[in-house]
Design a protein around this nucleic acid. Structure first.
Lengths: 237, 237
DNA sequence: TCCTGTCAAGAGCGCCGCTCTCGTCCCTGG
DNA sequence: CCAGGGACGAGAGCGGCGCTCTTGACAGGA
């Protein structure tokens, strides 16, 4: 558990890391579909069968890359958030939205790997869920901060969730943000799905011919979503 | 141009259709990734090379399936729309949203084929754009009807689009809905992206652990989107 | 020192998309 | 009516894929 012990272990960790690095390079260049164990092995001066000492299958290697991609995206979003005044919750929201889009555009194949259609037969193992929700946690976190600061605009009181949705939202709130009104949390989830839905739409070419380039539309969407969840502009002071 | 002429032509059309049918079956069963020309050929009692008389490559066959999928989805949406009172624009909106989700859940692999990450290297040819926009046209159409009927709630006048987006939206409006206020059209596009974004999120497993099952949330989203674009409930009479 | 576990390598299996060649059959123009 | 040409299916084959199994070299613990 402590440090890496034997020379064998150290070598093993190093080779594992090198395989992932080369695989990530090929993924970024040619996409997940084209990621070939043989090509990775060749580039590393190994023979394909040797890779199976480190990853039991292509899917396992892909899973490792998925976790890395989620983490990279989460890190980018957190960095963007951290660069904005803590009290400017709306500005932070917009920064996170922009960072997601920017990261996706900079790493289209990685983005497609995590938010595109899942590889058939492939089902995400449990290791991927924790890194997968980093951006969602970030968004909920800043909404909570705005709520705590008293700057969050609540949805109209008349708007009640239907019972089934209220129950689901309550369960979600219990582990995520018990103090938030359920309507706020439901709207936050909706905004979250929209952020990634729009990013995917742009990246997968569905906007070509309408809102293309998508930059102004993405900015507008981030604004509208901030309104929708109730984030107010600027710093109270 | 008139009818199918010679026996050869008839045979060719029939075989082409059978290839597509078998390919669609395999696509529905195992996903696009697993769609193999050899398997299709074997199932049809042919040899793989013979298929190349009908489709010059796997991608071309896939493109044919994509067009079919867009058309099937468009047809389902149009049927759902047609089943609702013409004057109940909000009801029609919700029916279309529900039909998209239903179709996607009934045909996950076809849906993934058209709204998932594009196959690497694959770029949609022009044939696919016309069927691809059927649902969008349907949604814009019913918004226009509501506008014409005077039942559409306009966004707050204070909400102006930033110049770049206004210009894009205007270009879109010119060929789509010249009479609609730009803010309405922009909101419609946003709602359109959200509809498919949410559907993809559910289908690709991103909602597992939060809004799962997604039924109540999807209904809620359709409602919220109807509000957002300004569709009022019920029939004026 | 022996022995056990780890490792890279190689051969090979059954797939895949795709190409090329070769007979065959039928349609059509003379 | 018949010869030529075009469309067709079959087959062999190429290079590549994921993955398995066996083999031999090497290092660390008993």
């Amino acid at each position: 558990m402590t440090a890496i012990r034997t020379a064998r272990d150290r070598a093993r960790a190093e080779v594992t890391h090198e395989i992932k690095a080369e695989a990530r390079r090929q993924l970024a260049d040619h996409g997940a579909q084209q990621l070939s164990l043989r090509a990775v092995a060749k580039e590393l001066g190994m023979v394909s069968s040797a890779l199976y000492r480190y990853f039991p299958s292509r899917d396992h290697l892909l899973t490792a890359l998925i976790v890395d991609a989620y983490d990279a995206l989460g890190e980018a979003a957190e960095a963007a958030d951290a660069a904005v005044d803590r009290a400017d919750h709306r500005g932070r929201w917009r920064a996170v939205c922009r960072s997601v889009r920017d990261w996706a555009r900079a790493h289209p194949h990685e983005y497609a790997l995590i938010y595109g259609s899942p590889v058939p037969g492939y089902h995400a193992p449990q290791d991927t869920v924790a890194p997968a929700i980093r951006v969602a946690l970030l968004l909920v976190g800043l909404i909570r901060e705005s709520w705590a600061a008293g700057t969050l605009v609540e949805p109209p009181a008349a708007e009640a969730l239907p019972p089934a949705l209220a129950e689901q939202t309550r369960r979600l709130a219990d582990t995520l943000a018990p103090e938030l009104p359920l309507t706020v949390l439901a709207r936050a989830v909706l905004a979250w799905t929209h952020l990634f839905g729009l990013t995917s739409f742009e990246l997968f070419g569905q906007l070509v011919g309408s809102m293309d380039p998508a930059e102004p539309f993405a900015e507008y969407a981030a604004d509208q979503l901030a309104d929708y969840v109730g984030l107010r502009a600027g710093i109270p002071g």
